Measured scan of single mutants.
Amino acid sequence: MLEGKVKWSNSEKGFGFIEVEGQDDVFVHFSAIQGEGFKTLEEGQAVSFEIVEGNRGPQAANVTKEA
């Protein structure tokens, strides 16, 4: 699992980007967020995730919010 911080997200469009130190930003779709209820990410929020190869390149999977 990698750790990063949410660079920005748009809940209306359903995606955002995660900033990882020393690496390119990672695309995240809201379907990759683990948990119940409305899935949102806040700018600056710490997250853990895996990287998978998506249709348009690397993207985050199994995203969990850190406490």
Score class of each variant (00 low, 15 high):
residue 1 M to V: 13
residue 1 M to C: 14
residue 2 L to R: 11
residue 2 L to C: 10
residue 3 E to C: 15
residue 3 E to H: 15
residue 4 G to Q: 00
residue 4 G to F: 01
residue 4 G to D: 01
residue 4 G to Y: 00
residue 4 G to N: 01
residue 5 K to F: 10
residue 5 K to T: 11
residue 5 K to C: 13
residue 5 K to N: 06
residue 5 K to Y: 11
residue 5 K to S: 05
residue 6 V to P: 02
residue 6 V to A: 00
residue 6 V to I: 12
residue 7 K to N: 02
residue 7 K to D: 01
residue 7 K to L: 02
residue 7 K to S: 04
residue 8 W to T: 03
residue 8 W to Q: 02
residue 8 W to I: 04
residue 8 W to G: 01
residue 8 W to H: 05
residue 10 N to V: 05
residue 10 N to G: 03
residue 11 S to N: 12
residue 11 S to Y: 12
residue 11 S to P: 14
residue 11 S to R: 13
residue 12 E to T: 12
residue 12 E to N: 10
residue 13 K to Q: 08
residue 13 K to C: 14
residue 13 K to P: 03
residue 14 G to C: 12
residue 14 G to E: 06
residue 14 G to L: 09
residue 14 G to M: 12
residue 14 G to F: 09
residue 15 F to I: 08
residue 15 F to V: 04
residue 17 F to S: 01
residue 17 F to Y: 07
residue 17 F to A: 02
residue 17 F to E: 00
residue 18 I to T: 01
residue 18 I to S: 01
residue 18 I to K: 00
residue 18 I to G: 01
residue 18 I to R: 00
residue 19 E to T: 10
residue 20 V to Y: 06
residue 20 V to S: 05
residue 20 V to G: 02
residue 20 V to P: 01
residue 20 V to F: 04
residue 21 E to W: 12
residue 21 E to Y: 12
residue 22 G to I: 02
residue 22 G to P: 01
residue 22 G to A: 05
residue 22 G to V: 01
residue 23 Q to D: 06
residue 23 Q to E: 08
residue 23 Q to H: 14
residue 23 Q to C: 12
residue 23 Q to L: 12
residue 24 D to P: 14
residue 24 D to L: 11
residue 25 D to H: 03
residue 26 V to F: 03
residue 26 V to L: 08
residue 26 V to M: 03
residue 27 F to E: 04
residue 27 F to V: 01
residue 27 F to T: 04
residue 27 F to C: 10
residue 27 F to N: 04
residue 28 V to I: 08
residue 28 V to A: 04
residue 29 H to Q: 05
residue 29 H to V: 03
residue 29 H to A: 06
residue 29 H to E: 06
residue 29 H to I: 04
residue 30 F to P: 06
residue 30 F to E: 07
residue 31 S to F: 05
residue 31 S to K: 03
residue 31 S to H: 07
residue 32 A to K: 06
residue 32 A to Q: 11
residue 32 A to D: 12
residue 32 A to P: 05
residue 32 A to M: 06
residue 33 I to Y: 04
residue 33 I to E: 05
residue 34 Q to T: 14
residue 34 Q to K: 10
residue 35 G to V: 06
residue 35 G to Q: 08
residue 35 G to I: 06
residue 35 G to W: 09
residue 36 E to A: 11
residue 36 E to D: 12
residue 37 G to E: 09
residue 37 G to A: 08
residue 38 F to V: 14
residue 38 F to D: 13
residue 38 F to I: 14
residue 38 F to S: 13
residue 38 F to A: 13
residue 39 K to Y: 08
residue 39 K to H: 11
residue 39 K to S: 09
residue 39 K to A: 10
residue 41 L to W: 03
residue 41 L to C: 04
residue 41 L to Y: 03
residue 41 L to F: 06
residue 43 E to L: 15
residue 43 E to G: 08
residue 43 E to K: 15
residue 43 E to D: 08
residue 44 G to F: 04
residue 44 G to Y: 04
residue 44 G to H: 05
residue 45 Q to L: 08
residue 45 Q to T: 11
residue 46 A to W: 15
residue 46 A to V: 14
residue 46 A to M: 15
residue 46 A to C: 15
residue 46 A to F: 14
residue 46 A to T: 14
residue 47 V to R: 00
residue 47 V to F: 00
residue 48 S to P: 00
residue 49 F to E: 02
residue 49 F to A: 02
residue 49 F to Q: 03
residue 49 F to M: 04
residue 50 E to L: 10
residue 50 E to V: 13
residue 50 E to G: 03
residue 50 E to Q: 13
residue 50 E to A: 07
residue 51 I to M: 07
residue 51 I to R: 05
residue 51 I to N: 02
residue 51 I to E: 02
residue 52 V to I: 12
residue 52 V to K: 07
residue 52 V to C: 11
residue 53 E to Y: 14
residue 53 E to Q: 14
residue 53 E to V: 14
residue 53 E to S: 10
residue 53 E to I: 14
residue 53 E to T: 12
residue 54 G to M: 07
residue 54 G to Y: 05
residue 55 N to L: 14
residue 55 N to W: 14
residue 56 R to G: 07
residue 56 R to P: 05
residue 56 R to K: 11
residue 56 R to V: 07
residue 57 G to S: 04
residue 57 G to Y: 04
residue 57 G to A: 03
residue 57 G to D: 02
residue 57 G to P: 03
residue 57 G to R: 05
residue 58 P to S: 07
residue 58 P to A: 07
residue 58 P to T: 07
residue 58 P to C: 08
residue 59 Q to S: 05
residue 59 Q to V: 10
residue 59 Q to G: 03
residue 60 A to C: 04
residue 60 A to H: 02
residue 61 A to Q: 09
residue 61 A to P: 00
residue 61 A to N: 07
residue 61 A to Y: 07
residue 61 A to F: 08
residue 62 N to S: 08
residue 63 V to W: 00
residue 63 V to E: 02
residue 63 V to K: 01
residue 64 T to L: 11
residue 64 T to Y: 12
residue 64 T to V: 14
residue 65 K to Y: 12
residue 65 K to N: 06
residue 65 K to G: 07
residue 65 K to P: 12
residue 66 E to R: 15
residue 66 E to W: 11
residue 66 E to M: 15
residue 67 A to D: 12
residue 67 A to I: 13
residue 67 A to S: 13
residue 67 A to F: 11
